[in-house]
């Protein structure tokens, strides 16, 4: 190996030393990418339908969501009444999700949506979704008086939103009481909620 080659190797070595913070920067890129719709062509579009989130005929998808959320509304109302819980923002008038083993679902109003999640043993819970850039720091849930139950009220635009909960900063979980997106985004399954204009769907 001649002197020139050794110098080239030295320069390459200096150049290729890992940049500090590379892993954190990469995670930020991944988080930002989660907000993006998948890069494929689709003839379906509109506020009521995210063609990249679910693989169904759009009208069938909306009908299914309405049905699921409608069933949840009754169960959720029953649960809220039976526990005497005072949950929901002043603008949130309708309960649209049912209680399950872990999650209690999403209560949607015309603009304010109350997310309720049950996480026994958690020290903190946050909400991530397309509405907050999938940022685990952006929307922390507050612990309700019920102990294992965590709540956040979030104003949402009308349309279909994907979301998930983050437990103790690292464990991502979908809402077990809400419909799941048919496809995982970056390896994780997300939940879906539909917000309509003038009232919940």
């Amino acid at each position: 190996m001649d002197h020139d080659d050794r110098w080239d190797d030295q320069v390459r070595d200096a150049y290729r030393r890992p940049i500090a913070g590379e892993e954190r920067a990469r995670e930020q890129v991944i988080a930002r990418l989660r907000e993006e719709p998948a890069p494929r062509r689709s003839r379906w579009s509109g506020w009521w339908m995210d063609p990249d989130a679910i693989r169904m005929r759009p009208l069938l998808a909306v009908a299914s969501l309405i049905m699921v959320l409608g069933i949840g509304a009754g169960a959720g109302a029953w649960w809220a009444a039976s526990r005497g819980a005072s949950i929901g923002s002043p603008r949130s008038t309708t309960v649209v999700a049912r209680q399950t083993a872990r999650g209690i679902g999403a209560f949607t109003g015309a603009t304010a949506v109350t997310f309720v999640f049950r996480a026994p043993g958690a020290s903190r819970v946050s909400l991530v979704g397309d509405f907050n850039g999938w940022n685990p720091e952006a929307t922390p849930l507050r612990r309700a008086t019920l102990g294992d139950t965590w709540i956040a009220e979030v104003p949402l635009e009308r349309g279909l939103h994907a979301y998930a909960f983050v437990i103790d900063g690292s464990d991502w979980a979908p809402d077990p009481s809400a419909p799941l997106a048919a496809e995982a985004s970056f390896g994780r399954r997300n939940s879906l909620v539909v917000v309509g204009e003038g009232g919940p769907l």
Partner: peptide, 21 residues
């Protein structure tokens, strides 16, 4: 492009460090 958005995370993992340096 076929709909597996997570596959792009593999490309990010493959090229992010080179792009950053």
């Amino acid at each position: 492009v076929a709909g597996d958005a997570g596959a792009f995370a593999d490309l990010v993992a493959r090229y992010h460090a080179a792009c950053l340096r």
